[in-house]
Design a protein around this nucleic acid. Sequence first.
DNA 1: ATAAAGTTTAACCAAATGGTTGAATTATTT
DNA 2: AAATAATTCAACCATTTGGTTAAACTTTAT
Lengths: 202, 202
Amino acid sequence: MGLEKETEEKIFIAAQEVFQKKGFDGARMQEIADQADINKSMLHYYYRSKDKLFMAVFQAGIKKILPKLIGVLGSEKTLEEKVVQIVDFYYYIFKVNPNLPAFVIHEMNMHPERFHQFIVSTHVQIPQKFNEQVEEEISAGRMMEIKSEQFLINIVSMCMMPVIAKKMVQGIFGFDESDYKNFLKERKKLIPELIMKGVKPS
Amino acid sequence: MGLEKETEEKIFIAAQEVFQKKGFDGARMQEIADQADINKSMLHYYYRSKDKLFMAVFQAGIKKILPKLIGVLGSEKTLEEKVVQIVDFYYYIFKVNPNLPAFVIHEMNMHPERFHQFIVSTHVQIPQKFNEQVEEEISAGRMMEIKSEQFLINIVSMCMMPVIAKKMVQGIFGFDESDYKNFLKERKKLIPELIMKGVKPS
DNA sequence: ATAAAGTTTAACCAAATGGTTGAATTATTT
DNA sequence: AAATAATTCAACCATTTGGTTAAACTTTAT
């Protein structure tokens, strides 16, 4: 035995599950160790501190979302195609990693510096291409007067909110797990139509 | 001196600030005591435990949002007027209590039972009036085929998401506090139009 | 084979945390 | 004014928590 990186990876996977489910403050090093089925000292041996381990998970989390989003926004597709792609992507993220969006949002609110640092060091920014596209649609008279930032936040809001507020949606409508999944599936078709029709010129 | 409930109220106010900012797991009893400028023992004298104190704050938080929302949905106004009222209400909440939405959403995700208990004990439910209105608009041909649940979540998503993800919005667009406030102000006018135009029949 | 380096474990530690206690102080009742 | 009840506080406590250590075990290099 001793498949080299095995332990470090087991730790990372376990840390992802625990941190994403309970947040930094709610997570316990012992629980991560148990989940990874290793001795607690191993966490410190490989990652030095709770903070370092958390940062690894947090940054990996952002990297699962942001670059892809930026990629779609900067591509050569039409605006409408981009909307569909973003919606599809968010529902893929949710399927693979249901707690990731809420985790990232919450930790960003708790420690904005950590995110800010990430933004600066990776030069993340909304592609100019996307802004131009919005402006083009507007001057061509196919879209109402709207800032590209607002347009983007509309899409992201419609996709992420029902995922982040899962328990609220379930509670308020009395949805069980299956109802909820159906609800999200419906939205996948719905959102692009709502978004595009919503910004048509009045 | 000795304005009766003064201490208990000071504790509650302080607990609100600390819990809403740091969440249950991140909040410290000592910090709440310091914020309230009283001895830590007082917290337990008036509220017995961290859990009880938290529940008081959490339930008060929900009560600031849900009943008003239900009230608007059940009123005699038109759908469009209701959308405007909900948007206005959410931006009022944000102005008065910026961290409340993120706090409620996060704690609901951490402990769904607590919220569920609230729902059952207070018989919260979406007014039938609202569902009927949506159906009426649809059969009158003024609205596309859409479930009232989806329609409601559209509104809530558009309002709450940029508030909950404040730090993400600021980070990604490079907004300072003033830019961000402007951004929200713009949305106030924008959202009702987007929502209503989005559900027009195709 | 042997030394060196890398990995794993149990036992341990100091600080932090929610909570308790009992005396002291203040307000209320009789 | 005396007795009673409510409120406040400093000191204390048990448990939890992130983190350390030193020895044992395993793998790799010589």
